[in-house]
Amino acid sequence: MQAGELITTDQQGRSGSEADIQQAYSVLEDVMDPEVPVVSVMDLGIVRDVSWADGHLYVVVTPTYSGCPATEYIETSIRDALQDAGFSHPKVSQRLDPAWTTDWITEQGRSRLKAYGIAPPVGSSNKRSLLSGITQVECPNCGSEDTEQLSEFGSTACKSLYRCKSCLEPFDYFKCI
């Protein structure tokens, strides 16, 4: 089917099929996070629902951090990517509850982060205790566990800054929330 046909039919309020939803998901696999361009919105687990209603595709996303400046950019990227793929006027909305957790980052997302030089979140967000949140973070460069935290906050809200005491390289750690 050509993109143009879909746009016309969507505007007439056609009903979507399972194939449309699957196609939408595969489009979303290629919408990358602007701050960490190796992970997609699917890898991050921020896409909470894709559905078809009233002749339109509806996508529900949940923001990572309340003040994440990338949230609106991501919503626009999702809308643009779906439109380019032939979906007419896809609706993207936000959902706050349940709050996003790093537990939703997929295995593929974790290995992509690591390959990019960012240590993926360690453990589950449920087990983290408030004032003793010291975790052993593995260096994404050399694999050593002999690392130290330089700063609770790194280059973006979702990361903190670490240094490897074996290879001496500094690196970002994707915080567990």
Partner: peptide
């Protein structure tokens, strides 16, 4: 520098919370 990033990140979270 690390503290500056820390304070800005906390500030950013708070701006987001304020907006909500």
């Amino acid at each position: 520098l690390e503290e500056e990033m820390g304070m800005m990140n906390v500030g950013l979270d708070l701006v987001g919370q304020a907006r909500n």
